[in-house]
Design a protein around this nucleic acid. Structure first.
Length: 468
DNA sequence: CTTGATGATTATCA
DNA sequence: TGATAATCATCAAG
């Protein structure tokens, strides 16, 4: 036994220590002092480093000669097989002691988070980012804000860095593993190294590298969290819509008061409209979800306090009416002035119970509309209704009319028509639909008469037909 | 600083 | 899944 130990020691002195495969990455104590884990091992490494630093050509030659001598020793094969046996046994005992590392819960957490954030996993992040970028390039996609795409871009950046680093680590790990394996294979000619040992060594290397990877994952997670807090949570930071945007939304709301539930297309249309007007000023766009939020808030707040919104309602009702009237008037003029071949000639609003003659006067149209506006929803009490009527025919009507004409004064005929067309549905609903707020304060769920809100409502539903 | 307005979020429901 | 109701958080005026 002592002989074996001596031989082993001498072998170890020449090359990598034979124990090294058992003791982890750190090399073993060459002099038998058992450094348990921390300081002892460090000291060992220091010793070895010192030895390496003091290696000279002469000592190398000596070692080689020694090695050669041992290899040529006549007892070598027999001793080698004994060594192998011993190693096998110790290897088994060590294997029993070394537990298979369970999946690190923290690593799992990190992995899950990275997966959830779209940093790791399939190329979902970059793909959607590309999609967002494409949508932005197309010209203001429906549901992407600048901030969102910005966030996406940053996330993609993090993702890219993460993947490059990960790949780098992986590559380094593989290279190192191959290197160590080659080294061990090389050494297996001079000392007994079982495949299991190599496997274990590889495992150790992988663990080391995975701990480095964990650091990478951790810092990636941190980066994502910071990004989140800076971008997504900033969504909560409220910015008021511009005056024009609010105006547009209000116009739609009050002209569709009987059924203020814009369809998806209508929302998109509104978002676009608001975005266009806003982009001339502040430069932020309004998304469909923001339009949805706005309508959700508006509906609930209107319903809660109709009285408070009455003036606003009247104003916008009047404004829409004036706009529509202008449109109609313009169309009428158009039809009279232009040749009958003009597409817009003889503009008529179509509805089974609403046939408006093109020659009808603007005043009667207005009064019709106003009387209709208060009837478009069932007000909780008659007093409100009366007030509504009063204000419509009274002071606020004047103001509204002024507002309306100011708005439409600079408008071209085309704009007026588009306005009317855009809200023609609402006007019809506004004027003649008996549906609206019920006594309980809820809007009737269904726009019962198909004429009130056609399913394909929107700017496209233009009925400027001469024949009917 | 207070307060009302308002955009966004969340829980709940049909 | 979309609507509602409640609530949060911020803006903006006074």
């Amino acid at each position: 036994m002592e002989d074996q130990a001596r031989i082993m020691q001498s072998l170890g002195g020449v090359t990598l220590a034979a124990h090294s495969v058992q003791g982890g990455m750190a090399l073993p104590p060459p002099h038998g002092h058992e450094g348990t884990d921390g300081d002892g091992r460090k000291q060992d490494i220091g010793d070895i480093l010192h030895q390496i630093m003091t290696i000279t050509d002469q000592s190398l030659d000596e070692a080689q000669a020694k090695k050669h001598g041992l290899n040529c020793h006549r007892m070598k094969p027999a001793l080698f097989s004994v060594l192998c046996e011993i190693k096998e046994k110790t290897g088994l005992s060590i294997r029993g002691a070394q537990e298979d590392d369970p999946p690190d819960p923290q690593l799992m957490r990190l992995d899950n988070m990275l997966l959830a954030e779209g940093v790791s996993g399939p190329e979902k992040g970059s793909a959607s980012a590309a999609a967002a970028a494409a949508a932005a390039a197309v010209g203001g996609g429906a549901d992407n804000s600048i901030e969102h795409s910005d966030y996406r871009a940053k996330l993609t950046q993090i993702r890219q860095i993460y993947h490059t680093e990960l790949e780098k680590y992986e590559q380094a790990c593989n290279e190192f593993t191959t290197h160590v394996m080659n080294l061990l294979r090389e050494q297996s000619r001079t000392r007994p190294i079982s495949p299991k040992e190599i496997e274990r060594m590889v495992g150790i290397i992988h663990r080391k590298f995975s701990s480095i990877q964990m650091q990478l994952k951790q810092s990636t997670c941190e980066a994502v969290m910071i990004l989140r807090s800076r971008f997504l949570d900033a969504r909560r930071k409220r910015r008021n819509f511009s005056k024009q945007a609010t105006e547009i939304l209000n116009e739609y709301f009050y002209s569709h008061l009987s059924n203020p539930y814009p369809s998806e297309e209508a929302k998109e249309e509104l978002a676009k409209k608001c975005g266009i007007t806003v982009s001339q000023g502040v430069g932020s766009t309004i998304t469909v979800s923001q339009v949805s939020n706005w309508f959700g808030n508006k509906r609930i707040r209107y319903k809660k306090n109709i009285g408070k919104f009455q003036e606003e309602a009247n104003l916008y009702a009047a404004k829409t009416a004036v706009n529509a009237a202008h449109a109609v008037a313009a169309a009428v003029q158009n039809s009279q002035a232009n040749s009958p071949t003009t597409p817009n000639s003889g503009f008529q609003m179509k509805d089974e119970d609403f046939q408006m003659d093109a020659t009808e006067s603007k005043n009667s149209l207005l009064s019709n509309m106003f009387s209709g506006s208060s009837g478009s929803f069932n007000l909780p009490n008659a007093g409100d209704m009366f007030m509504s009527m009063q204000s419509l025919n009274g002071a606020s009507y004047q103001g509204a009319q002024v507002g309306g004409s100011v708005q439409s004064q600079g408008d071209t005929i085309r704009h007026a028509i588009s306005q009317a067309v855009g809200y023609s549905d609402g006007l019809r609903g506004h004027l003649y639909s008996p549906h609206g707020l019920n006594v309980n304060g809820g809007w009737h769920d269904a726009p019962t008469p198909s004429s009130v809100t056609s399913p394909t409502e929107g700017a496209g539903s233009v009925h400027s037909d001469t024949s009917n």
